[in-house]
């Protein structure tokens, strides 16, 4: 019985130590994870540009929507507010992307600013790391005559979840970082 107890204590100590040890990632590893997270956000911005582009065939746009949705944790939402109406409107990620695909402009330009701001990765109680990456987008909508009818700049704060996982591939144990995007807060900063 006594051995049991000490075994349990040892096991717990093991877990606790593991928890602490994992948090002490070297700056190099942290940077590699940051870059990976940033890459997923860049992928998303490319998908968004493709989905919004009126030249993208319908079937391709739908396929890209599927790929974009795969980047996200299930149930992730996009919360949108405008300069004049700060109330947040919520959309499921797929709904948000499908709305973007169906926007009623003859031509759409989606540009991304170079700036990307990456927060620290913080751990939540279950051990998953969570961070936020901020990017800025310029959206321009044109009518049939090529006239600019709508333009805005939005700040997009994108949640990023990072979790260490392991899997067997061809008998080899692979430790990988599972990066999934989460909720996105879209805030309008300028509008024309």
């Amino acid at each position: 019985m006594k051995t049991y107890k000490s075994l349990i204590i040892l096991l717990f100590a093991g877990f606790a130590l593991q928890g602490v040890a994992q948090d002490n990632l070297s700056p190099e590893r942290k940077q590699a994870i940051d870059s990976l997270a940033l890459e997923k956000v860049r992928d998303l911005s490319k998908y968004i540009s493709l989905i919004g582009d009126k030249d993208t065939p319908f079937s391709e746009a739908n396929r890209v929507i599927d790929r974009a949705v795969e980047l996200f944790m299930e149930g992730s939402e996009v919360g949108v507010s405008s300069l004049y109406k700060e109330e947040i409107n919520y959309y499921q990620v797929r709904e948000y992307l499908e709305r973007l695909m169906r926007l009623n402009y003859s031509k759409v330009d989606i540009e991304w600013y170079k700036i990307e701001y990456v927060s620290d990765l913080e751990r939540q109680p279950d051990g998953t790391y969570v961070g936020v990456i901020t990017i800025f987008q310029k959206f321009s909508g044109y009518d049939q005559e090529g006239g600019l009818v709508y333009q805005d700049v939005t700040k997009k704060d994108i949640t990023v979840y990072v979790k260490r996982k392991e899997t067997q591939i061809a008998g080899k144990l692979i430790g990988f970082w599972d990066v999934l995007l989460g909720d996105i807060r879209v805030k309008e900063t300028t509008k024309e």
């Binding site: 928890g19 948090d23 913080e122 751990r123 939540q124 109680p125 279950d126 051990g127 998953t128």
Partner: peptide, 11 residues
């Protein structure tokens, strides 16, 4: 609201 430590992280 405030940050509170729980298990491996915060909330």
């Amino acid at each position: 609201l405030q940050l509170e430590q729980e298990n491996l992280g915060y909330k």
